[in-house]
Design a protein around this nucleic acid. Sequence first.
DNA 1: TAAGTTTGTGAATCTCATA
DNA 2: ATATGAGATTCACAAACTT
Lengths: 379, 379
Amino acid sequence: MGVVETTKQRTARKAKPVAVPKEALPLGQILSGDCIEAMRSLPDASVDLVFADPPYNLQLGGDLNRPDGSHVDAVTNDWDQFDSFKIYDDFTRNWLTEAKRILKPDGALWVIGSYHNIYRVGAILQDLGFWILNDIVWRKTNPMPNFRGTRFTNAHETLLWASQGEKAKYQFNYNAMKTLNDELQMRSDWVIPICNGGERLKENGQKAHPTQKPEALLYRVLLATTEKGDVVVDPFFGTGTTGAVAKRLGREWIGCEREDFYRGVAQKRIDKELPLDESALKIMQSKRAAPKVAFGALVEAGFLKPGTEVFDKKRRWVATVRADGSLECGKQTGSIHGLGKDLQGAPSCNGWTFWHYEDEGVVKQLDAARQLYLLAVED
Amino acid sequence: MGVVETTKQRTARKAKPVAVPKEALPLGQILSGDCIEAMRSLPDASVDLVFADPPYNLQLGGDLNRPDGSHVDAVTNDWDQFDSFKIYDDFTRNWLTEAKRILKPDGALWVIGSYHNIYRVGAILQDLGFWILNDIVWRKTNPMPNFRGTRFTNAHETLLWASQGEKAKYQFNYNAMKTLNDELQMRSDWVIPICNGGERLKENGQKAHPTQKPEALLYRVLLATTEKGDVVVDPFFGTGTTGAVAKRLGREWIGCEREDFYRGVAQKRIDKELPLDESALKIMQSKRAAPKVAFGALVEAGFLKPGTEVFDKKRRWVATVRADGSLECGKQTGSIHGLGKDLQGAPSCNGWTFWHYEDEGVVKQLDAARQLYLLAVED
DNA sequence: TAAGTTTGTGAATCTCATA
DNA sequence: ATATGAGATTCACAAACTT
């Protein structure tokens, strides 16, 4: 396997096989119809990157309402309906096969998905000979909660990044990523908000597409694994986020999209897009996640053992730490903040400074344990 | 499908099929030999949870045969990539099949892996009928950097949590998780340090095991998806992190481990582990677990007099409590839930939190009266 | 205008006991 | 089996609205 970062190496690389001239490709066009058919119209080994956001094959039950009674607008589109894993797998194998064919030997593939489909996609692309370079976790800052309290909040999606094979070369702009990440190596978990607000495309007040991806995500993908002038194909173009970001970053793009409506929205969007300027670059840079600590994390990590007694400064109340990081004081229980609030009858309470514990005879605020934890956790 | 949180329901649930008495199981033992063989010695539908940390690197040991019967030399890596996946898949299917068999109908499975193997595992467990509930990202605070700068820092591993099937019940301690996370829903991305420092087991100054998992990870898994006394099986026991945390949390455990050395290390470790006190083990209960109270019972008991006026937060509607615990608002009548639902035109309504009443000049939710009633009725 | 409050919404495999 | 009714359940952010 290998990495290519300089334009020089890249040029040498491209000269090797019979290169397909870019002019032979439908650059800057949205091909209509089925993506497998559309990709068949492209020559072998002709593109640098495929970015794919295929249907996730969600299998939703009935309607879902929020606790306030409002209705959740779910993805119920026909294009996300498959009758079985077998049918979904066949579909996946077919489009991945075409993607592999049109990619140059040193090209790469990105696919985004959720737990509903990503394990099918990952296994199949490995079967086809793709070589996984990283799996990337898109950590959403603002995911939809789990309204019924039945599972963990589904707060991330997964991207797979793969080369043509174990020994294949690929483009990785290491230094660009390091710069983007405040001079630290870019990690496999990316903290990026979901696409809403002004960026979210609307038609007649309705969202134009149910699953529009944030531009920041595509920005990072293209900045990390393509260089200027590279050709990027998106087989599931939707509203054209890939095309818009590619145009902004000076990459060539080709989209495939079955639905007339989405093609129209995408075309309009990309026509308005302008090449990148410096100020835009700064805006796209992600902020580092704030080191917020839950009290429960300290208990899990053994910094405070369940059963430990904690008390307020004047020892008016004594409570016991339980396994889940809640406190128990007589019949009353709650979080460090909530129980402190209830006991005092106060409107709010900062449990970190309200509660104390004894450590080898010395009385300390809970906040002291939090500081120790943060020190231990930050490499 | 469904979630179970109360001990009461749980007991009823267990009584349904011919229950395997716990005494028939090798609780607190580390079974030697191949995990598939070891699991074969356990009865059907007998355990509550399987936690598995399978090998990624095909160190399967012993003789291996291709599906066509031809022999593969595992030690000299005498296979191509296709063989390698095939063999790994067969191995995975075999141990997952045994795991599924020994799990109770409402039991659950956890598997941890990295991008090398988790896509194989995920696809196969779906094929076997397991139903993925979440994929969880263990986000490492202190991962190994990518020294050569060729990829993104591989800063996470993935855990899959699955029930026996789409309609199967499963245990999820929602409120314990919410408490552990400072009163916010626990998300699918968990920030936990890697296992090092004093927790990392050493023998003669060397790491005892190359992939020892942090206890905080198992702590959260067991706290979230088991209750006290549940039986947890770990087919790839290693140095026994699962056993140690299970013992601490008052869960029963069974391990399988092929290597004598690891069995020795694990046994010594677990012998030293002490169970937590009863009180420390308690976790925040869900309201689902609380005894159900009929509104009519409050009225009967005089906690709310017939004729009392109740109203929603904004006083858009005012209703009168009737002797049978129903409400009347103009011509409309119904239960506290049903009337609230009808008046709002909402799909559902929790009358306990929707309706309010005045008690000595203070506005309170009906739920406050329920809490008073529960306190009075207990003991 | 500025500041505070209310409302809307996002790739979601989202209940359970009883009749 | 399937229908019914009780009742448990939400976080971050932005836009709209009010004071």
